[in-house]
């Protein structure tokens, strides 16, 4: 049932397309033949109960699963018509084009400036680093709070600020797509709100795929929502349809809080 979820993404080609993606950890299958098209410059939320495979699917989109020693990925993920899992594709390059923000803020034990500049530096950025750092921090809505203490340790920032720094750090590499793995789950409501406002701003320039276990958050910030259950894609469609008029009974049960 989960093989054809092609939705209308307008005239533009999708930013990412998963085709029959499966992931095995050892002998257990975490993701089962999921196909879905991520429309460009939209926010796509992946929702579902714990262990449904939403984070695992997200990590397929920039080959982070390569780092898990017993994970095997099959199927295709198309990015500009190229399969990310072709042997000649370098995962390092994939992760540069498709950035990731993690569940817990994980700044490096360095200054705010060096955190932001790390990605450009390792990728051989030759331009004006100060300008790039400022631009990235502004885009992450952090500049006004930190512009006068860029050399302070990132560990001195609050949790919400740290997470926005992690977003700035990701943006500094100038990715096309930003993957977010429950970026606000470790934050308080006010910090969460800031991250959500930020995501709304960011979709003008980036395609965003966000995993969240918070259904209200998915409803607030996303344009499209995919509901996963037990490793399968149950339903994928415009967010308002998923939350108000889902086609599948399981989806309805989940979004109305009957389980999960």
């Amino acid at each position: 049932m989960a093989t054809s979820h092609s939705i209308d993404t307008g005239a533009r080609p999708p930013a990412l397309e998963a085709r029959k993606v499966s992931v095995h950890y050892g002998t257990t299958q975490a993701v089962r033949e999921i196909s879905l098209r991520i429309p460009a410059n939209q926010v796509v939320a992946l929702i579902g109960p714990s262990g449904c495979g939403k984070s695992t699917l997200l990590r397929c989109f920039n080959r982070m699963n390569d780092l898990v020693s017993d994970a095997r990925v099959s199927g295709e993920v198309l990015f500009h018509g190229q399969n990310l899992y072709e042997p000649e594709i370098d995962p390092v390059e994939v992760r540069r084009r498709i950035g990731m923000v993690f569940q817990k803020p994980n700044p490096f034990p360095k200054s705010i400036y060096d955190n932001t500049a790390f990605g450009p530096r390792i990728n051989g950025f030759k331009g004006d680093m100060d300008a790039l750092v400022e631009e990235s921090l502004r885009r992450a809505a952090l500049w006004d709070e930190v512009h006068d203490r860029l050399s302070d340790s990132a560990y001195n920032l609050s949790g919400g600020q740290q997470q926005r720094l992690c977003i700035a750090r990701t943006l500094a590499v100038r990715p096309e797509i930003v993957l977010m793995d429950e970026p606000a789950s470790a934050l308080d409501p006010i910090a969460t709100q800031k991250i959500e406002e930020l995501i709304f701003e960011l979709k003008k320039e980036y395609t965003i795929v966000i995993v969240t276990h918070n259904m209200h958050q998915a409803a607030r910030i996303s344009d499209y929502t995919a509901f996963l259950y037990m490793g399968e894609l149950v339903e994928f469609g415009p967010t308002d349809k998923i939350f108000t008029n889902p086609s599948e009974e399981q989806t309805e049960a989940y979004v109305t809080g009957r389980f999960g």
Binding site: L67, R95, M100, F102, N106, P107, F108, T170, V173
Partner: peptide
């Protein structure tokens, strides 16, 4: 998490 962050930036 530090390794993940660095890998995620294309290191």
């Amino acid at each position: 998490s530090i390794r993940q962050a660095a890998y995620g930036l294309g290191a």
